[in-house]
Amino acid sequence: MENLINIALNSVFVGNILLAYFLGMCSFLAVSKNMQTAAGLGVAVIFVLAITTPVNWLIYSFLLAPGALAWVGLPDLNLSYLKLVLFIATIAAIVQAVEMVIDRYSPALYTALGVFLPLITVNCAILGASLFMVERNYTFSETIVYGIGSGSGWALAIISMAAIQKKLRYADVPEGLQGFAINMITTGLMAIGFMLFAGISL
């Protein structure tokens, strides 16, 4: 249990998938201008990560990992080199499916999240979380916690960024620094802030 709490805390703060591993920058920079859209995308990322990471864990553990196919009598097979293709296909398929399900059953949620879902397929944080999950040998329960934690960390980062940008409009930023450059530096300062959580120990 302590282990799971640690993974959760670390994936949100110190090992934030955006601020420590630079994943998901594209959509982070493109969508952080407005608080509402930032929050919407953040929630969508949590949602998709919470589903895709565990599903990819199942695919990896029962189909791809060395010896994973022992249950069909092929213990020597190692298909792990196919993980990239299969992961990205799974992510695309799940995002599509989620979009259709939401559209069918919750029009309100669809209007809120719908536009963000296609953006998410190309968000490197989603694929990155699945790859890290393999790299770090997580168990199934750890994977679930890690998926939700990384998503929350990403959402936290983009929402804070939107809030900072709102304040930044009243700041007098030098001309050449405006836009992309100041966003990067702000992100850097945010990353420093998040690293301060490194001292926390349970």
């Binding site: 591993y21 450059a181 990067m184």
Partner: peptide
């Protein structure tokens, strides 16, 4: 990690 963000920011500037 923060170093990279700041360096990129300065580069673009």
């Amino acid at each position: 990690a923060p170093g990279a963000f700041i360096v990129i920011g300065l580069f673009v500037w």
